[in-house]
Amino acid sequence: MSILVTGATGTIGSLIIQGLANAGAEAKALVRRAGNRKFPAGVTEVVADLTDIASMRAALSSIRTLFLINAVTPDEVTQALTTLNLAREAGIERIVYLSVIHSDKFTNVPHFTGKYTVERMIESHDIPATILRPAYFMQNDLMVQQTIQSYSVYPMPIGSAGISMIDARDIADVAVAELLRRDKATSALERIILELTGPQPLTGTSVAKIWSSVLGHEITYGGDDVAAFEGQLTSYSPGWLAYDMRLMMAGIQTFGMHSSEGTTAKLQSIMGHPLRTYEDFVRESVAGN
């Protein structure tokens, strides 16, 4: 039996595939089209689509453990609930699901509420799963790195409530640890929830200061205008997605993204190494540019 990773070509999924391969696990990478991505030695490519029932039944028929991640799409909830139902049908009792932090607070944000709905299914059907609730990914800021360096402005309107950004590599490391723990267990393990946050809360102003320090010249924070942020996203993203991101940023400005006491120590114990800092992320990003 093996571990199936959905979203295997994405930021998180590809890191998880690599981590499982490094651990010598029998991993399968779910892709929609064959041959578009080279995977590590020992990883099996499985062609299926989360919206295609027959292909997903086949993909789930010979695995022991499932990592489920859904891209932000209009049918995200349908994809997730269908996959979980098919997993139950196949008798799979080892699941790691990537949700989002504070999904119960950001009730007007479509993809947050969608993930909260999926969590409710996992709870109501007592599905043996680890629910991972990550905060804002540090890697999201790679999308605006060129803007930061060219125009000396940090444009993400994250406000001042404070968000404990987390490096995608740390998310993947926790996911791999949980997949291996569940896969190696002799029977289904109890359901747990893990908040995934970075080592310190950051604000728009403090992020700009970090970029200033690394780049050696002043970077200013672009401010809290979420309408302007939506307008910028609309120029290269679907309108529904740009609006979803606008609502998310407004929620971040209101609630922030903070972890519970003891989260940092718990995550570091699971991973076996310290959480990566935002400054480390920026330095690596600038060095590799």
Rank of each mutant, 00 (worst) to 15 (best):
T9G: 06
S14V: 06
G24C: 04
K28W: 08
R32C: 04
R33V: 15
R33Y: 08
P40Y: 08
G42V: 13
G42Y: 12
V46D: 09
L50F: 13
I53A: 11
A54S: 15
S55G: 07
L60A: 02
T65C: 13
T65F: 09
L66K: 07
A71E: 13
A71D: 12
T73A: 14
T73F: 08
P74A: 02
V77F: 09
Q79A: 05
L81S: 08
A87F: 10
E89G: 03
I92F: 07
E93K: 15
F106D: 10
N108A: 15
F112L: 03
G114I: 06
V118G: 05
S124I: 13
I131Y: 03
F137Y: 15
Q139G: 07
Q145L: 15
I148P: 00
Q149K: 12
Y151E: 13
Y151D: 10
G159H: 02
G159W: 00
A161E: 10
M165W: 13
D167Y: 15
D167K: 02
A172M: 04
A175V: 06
V176G: 05
L180N: 04
R181S: 14
A188P: 05
R191F: 12
L194Y: 13
E195R: 01
G198Y: 01
Q200K: 11
K209V: 00
K209G: 00
W211K: 01
I219K: 01
T220K: 08
G231L: 02
L233T: 10
Y236W: 11
S237N: 14
P238R: 14
P238M: 07
M248L: 13
M249D: 07
I252E: 10
Q253T: 05
T254M: 11
S259L: 00
G262E: 04
G262W: 13
A265W: 04
S269P: 01
I270H: 03
H273Q: 14
P274A: 07
L275N: 03
D280S: 15
V282T: 03
R283Q: 04
V286F: 14
